[in-house]
Each structure stands twice: as C-alpha cells, then as structure tokens.
Amino acid sequence: MEDFAKLLTSIAALVGAIAWPTALLLIVYIFRTELRLALNKVPMLLDRVKKASVPGLALELDRVADDEAESGIDKNGNITPRQLEAAARIAIQAEEAGSQEALLRELDRLCLEYDSLRRSLPSGEKRTRAMTRVIAKMRSLAPSLIDFLDTYKGSGSAGSRLAAIAMMQMDPRAADLAWLKDRFSTEQPFLLYHAALALQNVANICDTPEKKRNLREVAGQALAKVKSFAGVPDRGTVEVLEMLLSSLPH
C-alpha cells in the first residue's frame, strides 16, 4: 500500500506539470504494470458483485422476505419456519449445482444493500423494515455459506458482520461468543439486537452447566454494556438479553 501511495503521488505531480489529455496517455503507458497490479488487488467482494446475479435465487429470497412482511409472522425479527424452509431448499439447490459462487455473490450484494440502507435512510420504522428484509434473505443463504463465517466476521463492512451474525443465528454451534460480546461495544442498534438473538439461540444448544454459565456471563456483560449507553437503550435488545438471563441458571 505504501508503494501504491507513492505511485499516486507521482501521478498527481505529473498531472500538475503537463496538460491532462497528454498526461493521461503517458500515465497509462508508463505505469501500465503497476496499475494492472493495483487493479488486481481490488477486493474479491466487489468482483463477485459485478458478476451477473442468478435470477432464480434472487426471486426465491424476495419471496421469503415478501411472505414474512405480508404475514407479519414475527415483527421482532426472529427466525421463522419460512426462512428455515428456504434455507434448506437453497442448500439443496447449491449442492446439486456444485458451486457456492452464486450464493456468495448474492450475500455480498445483500451486505452492500444493508450498508447502503444505513447511509441513505433516516433512522426509523421504514429503515428497520428494510434492514429486516435484508437479514431474512441473509438467513436463507447462511447455512450454505457457513464455511465463510470467519471472512465475514473479519470484514470492515457492517453489512458483512450482519451476515456473520445471520450465520450464527441459523447455526448456533458456530457462534463465537467472544466475538458476539464485542459487538455490544462497537455496533449500531440493529446489529446489537440481532447479536442478542444469536446469543438467545445459543442457549438452545447449551448442554452442560459450564456452557450455560459461560453464556450467562457473556449475556450479562452485553446487557450491562447496552444499558451503559448514553440516552435510552434499545428496548428490544434489553428485552432479549433479560429474557435470556432469566432462563439461565446462576
């Protein structure tokens, strides 16, 4: 990155010295090797998003989101039978096709959609509904892409981290409690709420007293962090964490 920064500095100096049309042609010629290498380093996420989407997959995800919105089965954003059914159907189709590339492209598109919604819409019910549609679609893809969990956990994109949370919601066995706990120090309310739901789902697979105590400690620290925020804490997140704590032994 340092070498590329020096390259850009040299380009700027050259542009300032001669006329722009001539400079452009000269730059492309002189730095053709460096520019080719730089372009090759563009994140694979963007490369996948550029490729054509799979119409059948997009339609399937839209159907799931539309069904949930119309039926109002769970306005709190919990996992529903429709999402589980769609996830199983998509997993079978992906296995038959022998490729996960189309699913990855669609998940990356949803990550970017979430990031765009956060930037473009004001906080409120409309934005929350739009974001809930996104995570409903992410859940339908999550079981098929669980092998990529670490990649999405480590992303600087909030949308990618939401995708990681969706994977943990759908497969609690893959939940990283330490990582989920850290969300309560760094994320915005929507991700906090869904991180709390992920912890709630982990409780369903805690089969030893030690695991339950560990989960209780994480949930207690998460709740304390949420309540320490300036202003009114997110009510939904507080309710999920308090309910979780009440279900776990001291």
Rank of each mutant, 00 (worst) to 15 (best):
Y114C: 08
V42D: 01
R139S: 02
S10P: 00
V232S: 03
M168A: 07
E85G: 10
R161S: 12
L215G: 08
S10K: 15
P143I: 06
G236K: 12
A175V: 00
A86M: 00
S140Y: 03
L39R: 13
P172N: 10
A13C: 00
K50H: 06
F184K: 12
S228M: 04
V64C: 13
D108A: 10
K181G: 07
S99R: 09
L45I: 09
Y193E: 10
Q83D: 00
H194R: 02
L61T: 08
S120K: 12
G56M: 10
L8S: 10
Q221C: 04
L25G: 13
K227M: 14
E106M: 13
E34H: 08
H194K: 07
E113L: 14
L57H: 03
V54Y: 01
L117A: 08
P43V: 00
I165P: 10
V42F: 13
E217V: 09
L37A: 15
V232I: 09
S120H: 11
L141M: 10
E242W: 03
A219M: 08
Y29W: 11
L244T: 11
L117F: 10
R139L: 04
D115F: 06
T80S: 13
H250N: 15
G72D: 10
Q188Y: 10
E106S: 06
R235F: 02
A88G: 00
L7Y: 01
R127A: 07
R32V: 00
L25E: 12
